[in-house]
Amino acid sequence: MIKLTARQEQILNLIRDAIENTGFPPTRAEIATELGFRSANAAEEHLQALARKGAIEISPGTSRGIRLRDMGGAGSSRSGAQLSLPHPALMQLNLPLVGRVAAGSPILAQEHIETTYNVDKSLFSAIPDFLLKVRGMSMRDAGILDGDLLAVKKIDSARNGQIVVARLGDDVTVKRYKKTGSLIELLPENPDFQPIRVDLEHDDFALEGLAVGLMRSWH
């Protein structure tokens, strides 16, 4: 068992709770705000210490590139967001993988399904209905990269700040959700991309699902 300081345990629990509640780890700034640090640099120092002890893995260059590692303790991997594909012995769910989505057809239409994966349901903060292959880098700073498999639970409503799969006209996109009145903003996690603004009174918009985890095949 790896021995952590009280502060390191606190940060590790914060990361776990964020993944469990939103499917994704917090940013350094969010950790600093939550724990009262003066700057994100203080959070970074604690994260580096956790990485040296093997409690987490850090992906450089992304604000949410934090992965929990199984340290052998109870509850040490309550959510599997951003973990690689599991060992076959743990597989329990059979999830369709949705590739490119044709305009105007349901996201789970048979022609969209490229294959299926058997995965352990304990990998996710909620049981997903399907996997979506991520296209592009608009959510890079949330640790969601081109080619990743996003675990998605079908929903018809979302809370502000959650990462959703949304349909706007003929396009399906992954973004962070923000609603104010009849205006919805779909926010990227990459400064190279602009927010998408949706007017519910005029635009053809639908929520396809909520991101509840991320899978990446490591080669």
Score class of each variant (00 low, 15 high):
Leu4Trp: 07
Thr5Gly: 14
Ala6Glu: 15
Arg7Asp: 15
Glu9Trp: 05
Asn13Glu: 14
Asn13Gln: 13
Leu14Ala: 08
Ile15Pro: 05
Ile15Tyr: 06
Asp17Asn: 12
Ile19His: 04
Ile19Cys: 12
Asn21Ser: 15
Thr22Asn: 07
Gly23Thr: 02
Gly23Tyr: 05
Pro25Phe: 03
Pro25Thr: 05
Thr27Gly: 04
Thr27Phe: 01
Thr27Asn: 04
Glu30Asn: 03
Glu30Val: 06
Glu34Arg: 12
Ser39His: 03
Asn41Pro: 01
Ala43Arg: 02
Glu44Thr: 04
Glu44Trp: 01
His46Tyr: 13
Leu47Ser: 03
Lys53Asp: 14
Glu57Val: 09
Ile58Trp: 00
Gly61Ala: 08
Thr62Asn: 00
Thr62Cys: 01
Ser63Cys: 00
Arg64Leu: 09
Ile66Ser: 08
Leu68Met: 12
Arg69Asp: 07
Met71Ile: 14
Ala74Lys: 06
Gly75Ile: 05
Ser76Asp: 13
Gln82Asp: 13
Leu83Val: 02
Leu83Ala: 05
Ser84Thr: 13
Pro86Phe: 01
Pro86Met: 00
Pro88Trp: 02
Ala89Leu: 11
Leu90Asn: 01
Asn94Val: 05
Asn94Thr: 06
Pro96Asp: 02
Val98Asp: 11
Gly99His: 11
Ala102His: 10
Ser105His: 10
Pro106Lys: 06
Ile107Val: 15
Ile107Thr: 01
His112Glu: 12
Ile113Cys: 09
Ile113Val: 15
Glu114Tyr: 06
Glu114Ser: 11
Tyr117Thr: 02
Asn118Ala: 09
Asn118Met: 04
Asp120His: 15
Asp120Gly: 14
Ser122Asn: 11
Ser122Ala: 13
Leu123Asn: 03
Ile127His: 00
Pro128Trp: 08
Phe130Leu: 08
Leu132Gly: 05
Lys133Arg: 14
Arg135Leu: 10
Ser138Gly: 07
Gly143Thr: 00
Leu145Thr: 04
Leu145Arg: 10
Gly147Pro: 09
Asp148Lys: 07
Leu149Met: 13
Val152Gly: 07
Val152Ala: 06
Lys153Ile: 02
Ile155Tyr: 00
Ser157Gly: 06
Ala158Leu: 10
Ala158Val: 08
Gly161Val: 06
Gln162Gly: 01
Val165Lys: 02
Arg167Ser: 14
Asp170Phe: 11
Asp171Cys: 10
Val172Pro: 08
Lys178Phe: 12
Lys179Asp: 07
Gly181Gln: 12
Leu186Phe: 15
Leu186Val: 15
Leu187Met: 08
Pro188Val: 07
Asn190Gly: 06
Asn190Arg: 06
Asn190Gln: 07
Pro191Tyr: 02
Phe193Gly: 11
Phe193Arg: 07
Pro195Tyr: 05
Asp199Ser: 15
Asp199Arg: 15
His202Phe: 15
Leu207Thr: 02
Leu210Met: 10
Ala211Phe: 01
Ala211Lys: 00
Leu214Ala: 04
Arg216Cys: 01
Ser217Arg: 09
His219Leu: 10
His219Asn: 06
